[in-house]
Design a protein around this nucleic acid. Structure first.
Length: 690
RNA sequence: GCACCCGUAGCUCAGUUGGAUAGAGCGUUUGACUUCGAAUCAAAAGGUCGUAGGUUCGAGCCCUACCGGGUGUACCA
């Protein structure tokens, strides 16, 4: 359902008419006027035409006169009711509302249309890869991690809604210092072996599961390195425990590595469960351990040396290192401009490993992982995890994974603090595969989630006067300061359940809980999506827990209300209303009656709701092209708002004028379809009742 | 120092390739439940779009300088 085709056709006509009568001209897009009274699409091109005429031919022309000439051409187009020239030379086009209604209803029979315009060409069958979540597997997920997951997951849904084939990856850094720290905690603070940890894990209750336990332990390790003094310095002797642990993990085949693997795997299970509560899913979990053991770096290193992207330093501060020279900034005594990729001891830095990994994602490395199933969602979808060994037994051989990696474009959802490193990675990738695409590997950057001072205190953290004056306080896993995702979901569910309980006492406990779960998910996902990517979220409990105003539940509520109309209306009435709309082309008296209903101020209001609903596909395409899910979230809220107003002003079932009733039914039906579809793309479902 | 991001209503934020009277939510004040459910709707108040220049028929948006805030700038991952 959309009016975009008409708009595009008119744009093409405007351009061809300009070129025919005046001067050569670039493609024109058309724009949506700020108010319905100003038309359905506007072409403010006359100013530009006048300018070009003067520049190229030396003719002086009045923009209004130019607009008048273009007006005649547009009036002849099908679907156009009238054209006005407004202001100094705006060309405002009004669509035939009866014909548009007929078209919109007819096209709403088809499943949600896939788009063929923009950068995300549906004709291009190549795969898009989105990597998101990427939480260090050493503790419970907090809301900062969740912003990443929700942003990534929603972007995936947006891309899929435009017809793209998308693969979802969640990178697991299972061999890094963060995991090593928790291993140190278990081994040197708790003095536990792998068996002890297993037993502990089994004994833990749902109130404090393994990832929560590790959350606390990780914070303790931070203190442990400082000999118990939070403000003190880290003891080098204790830090050696960390580096020894890290080396043991990287070497593999020893009890420390086995413990690390147990912890990381269990935490990943916890993360997947947490994310699963919000409908966030993955296809494959590439792990750092396999990037190391399968020697991805060695291959990438060779390519980087060949292309000259990195150079070996023989003297100076970076002697014996391989560095990537800087181009975007200059260095100082304190900060060197060049970025070290290979250390003087021959080991590779994070940026280097990531270059290798990005090359694999783009199918440009010439190496692949082996895979095994990690877990299965209830609907049968399997999440795979990488492994270093080829399948051995017959069952594994028979159970072939899909082909992973090799995307035509890769989006990496990573917060903006890593922009510098990501820039290094991009440059490395582009040096190795220059001709691939303009930007095959995209850093989908977003600002972090911090805590409002009030939220920090609510979590029981004492703030200094200085901190309290700050606009926000950064979360810190090391200090254990943060809002755990599961805690927040639990609170949202409990609050929603209370509301459902007071409104729908008649529902069964299961129905009540399911409704509360859907509302909580809607609230949380919308809360994280309504901000644009480079807006920092200062997390506030009151705001996050709200179900009123610009929230997910507000949008859900509008859809629930729309559905409630159709619950009371028999199917036959809806079918007849739709048939009437579809038949408008064949009946001039009916079409005229519909035009009457859409006339005047009240008619404009109905029409404006309809056109707003028709813009979902266009908005989704924009959200995809700009990689900005917030566009879709804002649109959904605005549509819900417009529908709530409509709902309040019109009694649909009780409407006495038959034609008017039919029109209202069609509008309500189209809006609820679009609203439901928009919410689905945001990962939000509509409950039966609320 | 350098790089990137931000500065719009009391607060938190939208404002997409420059377009018509700069918009939401929250908060404040006031009004609307016998209806397809008020998790809603309506109305009011609230703005030198950080400052100063510039480009343009037209600037919140583009350019320059400055002021203020944030984040990076590791032989950590």
């Amino acid at each position: 359902m959309n009016l975009l085709e008409l708009q595009q056709r008119l744009g093409a006509r405007v351009r061809s008419t300009i070129e025919e009568k005046f001067v050569s001209f670039p493609p024109v897009q058309g724009e949506i006027p700020p108010r319905t009274e100003l038309g359905d699409v506007a072409f403010p091109v006359a100013f530009e035409v006048a300018k070009r005429l003067k520049q190229e031919k030396g003719e002086r022309a009045n923009p209004r006169a130019i607009a008048e000439e273009l007006k005649a051409a547009l009036e002849a187009e099908a679907g156009v009711a009238r054209v006005e020239v407004a202001g100094a030379g705006y060309l405002n086009v009004f669509y035939d509302r009866a014909q548009s209604l007929q078209h919109l209803v007819a096209s709403s029979d088809a499943p949600i249309a896939t788009l063929s315009q923009g950068d995300m060409s549906a004709g291009d069958k190549s795969k898009v890869i989105v990597e998101h979540t990427n939480i260090n597997p050493n503790k419970a997920a907090h809301i900062g991690h969740l912003r990443n997951g929700v942003l990534g997951d929603t972007f995936v849904r947006v891309l899929r809604a435009t017809g793209a084939t998308v693969e979802v990856q969640n990178y697991i850094d299972n061999t890094g210092v963060q995991v090593a720290d928790v291993v140190v905690g278990f081994m040197h603070i708790e003095h536990m072996t792998l068996e002890d940890v297993r037993r502990l894990d089994e004994s833990l209750t749902p109130e404090r599961p393994f990832d929560y336990y590790c959350w606390d332990l990780y914070a303790q390790v931070g203190l442990f390195y400082r000999r118990g003094d939070a403000e003190g310095k880290e003891d080098p002797e204790l830090l050696k425990l960390r580096s020894d642990t890290l080396h043991a993990i990287e070497a593999g085949d020893n009890p420390t590595a086995e413990l690390a693997d147990y912890i990381a795997t269990r935490i990943v299970e916890c993360h997947l469960k947490t994310m699963g509560r919000l409908g966030i899913r993955y296809d494959v979990l590439p792990r750092e351990s396999e990037i190391l053991s399968l020697r991805f770096w060695d291959r990438a290193f060779g390519r980087l040396k060949e292309t000259g992207a990195i150079r070996f330093e023989t003297e100076g501060r970076n002697a014996n290192c391989w560095v990537m020279p800087a181009d975007s900034h200059t260095g100082t005594d304190e900060h060197d401009a060049d970025k070290i990729i290979v250390r003087s001891n021959g080991t590779v830095t994070y940026a280097g490993k990531d270059i290798a990994y990005q090359l694999w994602k783009l199918g440009e490395l010439g190496l692949d992982f082996y895979y095994k199933p990690f877990q299965q969602y209830v609907d049968g979808h399997v999440v795979w995890v990488t492994t270093s060994q080829p399948p051995t037994d017959e069952a594994m051989v028979a159970n072939q994974p899909p082909k992973f990696g090799g995307g035509s474009i890769v989006y990496n959802v990573i917060d903006s603090r890593q922009s510098y490193t990501q820039d290094i990675v991009q440059r490395g990738v582009q040096a190795v595969v220059p001709g691939l695409a303009r930007e095959p590997s995209v850093h989908l950057s977003y600002e972090m989630v911090a805590l409002s001072p009030a939220a920090s205190e609510e979590l029981g953290f004492e703030l200094s006067a200085e901190d309290r004056a700050r606009p926000h306080i950064e979360m810190s896993g090391r200090k254990g300061l943060g809002v755990k995702v599961d805690d927040l979901i639990d609170r949202l569910e409990a609050n929603a359940l209370k509301e459902v309980d007071t409104r729908h006492a008649e529902l069964s406990p299961e129905e009540k809980f399911e409704t509360a779960r859907i509302i909580a998910t809607g609230a949380l996902r919308y809360f994280l999506l309504k901000w644009t990517r480079n807006s920092l979220i200062a997390f506030d409990f009151k705001e996050a827990l709200s179900f009123e105003g610009e929230t997910g539940p507000y949008c859900q509520y509008a859809a629930v209300r729309a559905n409630s109309i159709f619950r009371k209306l028999d199917d036959d009435t809806l079918a007849r209303a739709r048939a009437f709309a579809k038949g408008l082309a064949g009946s001039e008296p009916d079409a005229e009656a519909v035009r009457q209903i859409f006339a005047g101020e009240g008619g404009d209001e109905l029409w404006s709701l309809l056109t707003q609903a028709a813009r979902l596909e266009e908005t989704t395409a924009q959200a995809a092209a700009q990689a900005e899910p917030a566009y879709l979230a804002k649109y959904t809220f605005q549509l819900a708002k417009a529908f709530n107003l409509f709902y309040h002003r019109h009694r649909i079932i009780a409407e006495e004028n038959e034609t008017r009733r039919i029109v209202l039914i069609n509008i309500a039906d189209l809006v609820r379809r679009q609203l439901t579809a928009a919410l689905a793309t945001l990962g939000i479902t509509v409950p039966e009742r609320m």
